[in-house]
Amino acid sequence: MNKRILSILGPVIIIVLMIIFRYIFPNKITFLTEVVIFSIYVMGNNVLMGYLGYTSFGQPFYLSTGAYSAAIYFAYFGGNIFMAMLVAVIVGFLLSLVLAPGLMRLKSSYFTLINAALCAIGVFVFERLLIDITNGNDGLWFRGNMTATPFLDVRYPKNFFFFVLLILLIALYLYQKMDKSALGISMKATKANPEKMTFIGYNVFLIRSIGYSISIMMSALAGALYAINFGFVNPSLGENTRAIEVLLATLIGGVGSVFGPFFGALGFLGMKDIVSSFMSRWEFVVGIITIVVLFKFNRGIWGLIQDGAGLLQSRKKREKTVKVEE
């Protein structure tokens, strides 16, 4: 099959799956929209964790930075949704330029802890330091300022779902391209053996910094989409207790894979949704299921799907061989 068609096939299957879910469960549109946005957020974390080998407890900080960038734009500057998303991504990029020189020289454990500290700093900044702009704990409301978008007014949840699906499709396509590109291979090789990469002639710091920037920009984009979806933001979005959610979703989906983040987001939010409907401390059950998944299936849901597909293929091959022999 044509390579270009193959490269778009995976993302398209995921989008079609989500559209089918949307019509099978029409009253779950909020949940499905959250899965799509959360997938983009997990994809960002997967760049750090799966491609560069960094575990970050600071992703909520980057998410809330994106969300507040969009919210502040809506509240004080304009109502264009595309511009808000662009502002969030640019702020994410600028933030990565400031932080990468320090963070990308750290070992993973220090990186993890400093990122946790960044979350605490972020909450303080948005809640106290910028209270005149962000309204502190009351949150920043701006839904009324958002203007209609041409062709499809994404201010309505039904339309917004298709809008975020389109963004996910583009993100998955580019993510797949990145995975097979020089950058993707370099990042994976840097994770495996940074010293050897240096022997070959790679600037490992630069590779890590690029990966880190991609991760922050994706988190900021997800933050902006959350802000647009809810029409308001408050500092709790950036609390470091929420960092575990994106880490678990990355692990459940399959670390370092292209499609793992989507299945991780769907699996994690699905478990949370189902369990929380019959018990308030959903974290207990989700925690146990996560431990089982990670011990028994450490390549995550995507690894399971790949293994299943591999088994089917080998069975088909065997059947063909038997037929030929007959």
Binding site: I185, S186, A189, A192, K196
Partner: peptide, 14 residues
């Protein structure tokens, strides 16, 4: 040490 998770081709590509 080679990059064990990558193929021979990907190692050469690097």
């Amino acid at each position: 040490q080679v990059f064990g998770d990558l193929s021979v081709k990907e190692n050469l590509e690097l």
